[in-house]
């Protein structure tokens, strides 16, 4: 069945895929050939084809994380040809399509690599460190019910828009994966600045940034040295400005909070 472009020629590719049994064993690159790949396939559909072939041949398919396949859930996380989420800017792995590649290409596929993201198996990694950082303070401490009317607090449109832009982070981890220092600052700052910008978040702004940064350090992420690869590789375009906002929040919190610990 032909796709949108009846003239699109199927491709044959060489895949160099990282295979690793579990987090306690060493891994290595294994070469595979895939044939008749349609340019209209998504990158993950190409991996589906590989996995179906492997399974039919009695071999173990390649484990990888994915779910919504429309670029929003943040599950997919492949390091493709030396780039987080592959060569196309502003695109998650699941939204990368094979028309970005050419017949005969060799594609190297690796998992996110970071001490804080241990490999589960093959290309699947454990990103629960992100959850623990949010648990340390990435919320507004209100219970269900008893909240004021939604229109009680007017919020300037540009503030709401900026908060929204920070809030669009999908926690895929491309920032950590592409950072030379394996820093999680872009991820953490997106949440800190979203809640610092909004009036609802002001009540806890000091403890929030203190606790989230402390947890971030505890998880073993590196320090930001403003290289900018995180923002360049971020599939949803989280801005470096958020990191500056978080630095500001942190300095202010440390200098003026009543927290002596």
């Amino acid at each position: 069945m032909a796709g949108s472009n009846p003239n699109a020629k199927p491709m044959n590719l060489t895949l160099k895929v990282w295979r690793q049994r579990n987090r306690n064993t060493a891994g290595s690159i294994v070469d595979y050939q895939v044939k008749d790949i349609s340019p209209d396939m998504s990158f993950l559909e190409m991996l589906d084809v590989l996995n179906e072939d492997l399974l039919r041949q009695g071999e173990e398919p390649v484990a990888f994380d994915h779910d919504c396949r429309e670029g929003i859930c943040g599950s997919c996380n492949l390091f493709i040809n030396g780039r987080a989420h592959g060569p196309e800017a502003g695109t998650t792995t699941c939204q990368l399509h094979m028309r970005k590649f050419s017949d005969g290409d060799t594609i190297t596929i690796e998992p996110w690599r970071s001490a804080a993201f241990p490999v589960n198996k093959d290309l699947s990694v454990d990103r629960s460190a992100f959850d623990r950082i949010i648990q340390a303070g990435g919320y507004i401490s209100i219970n269900t019910g008893g909240t004021p009317d939604a229109n009680e607090i007017p919020i300037p449109k540009d503030i709401a828009d900026r908060a929204f832009e920070a809030a669009t982070c999908i926690a895929c981890g491309a920032c950590v994966a592409s950072c030379k220092n394996s820093s999680a600052m872009l991820f953490v700052s997106a949440k800190v600045s979203q809640l610092a910008l909004l009036p609802q978040g002001h009540v806890e702004r000091k403890t929030r940034v203190e606790n989230m940064v402390a947890q971030m350090d505890k998880e073993g992420f590196g320090a930001c040295s403003n290289i900018g690869s995180c923002a360049a590789e971020c599939p949803v375009g989280i801005s470096l400005e958020n990191i500056a906002i978080m630095n500001r929040e942190y300095i202010n919190a440390k200098a003026t909070s009543n927290n002596l610990a």
Binding site: K16, E110, R113, S114, A115, N181, S182, G220, G222, A223
Partner: peptide, 11 residues
């Protein structure tokens, strides 16, 4: 920061 990168470098 080197330590945070983990033991295995990208190929």
């Amino acid at each position: 920061n080197k330590k945070a990168r983990g033991g295995q470098a990208y190929v």
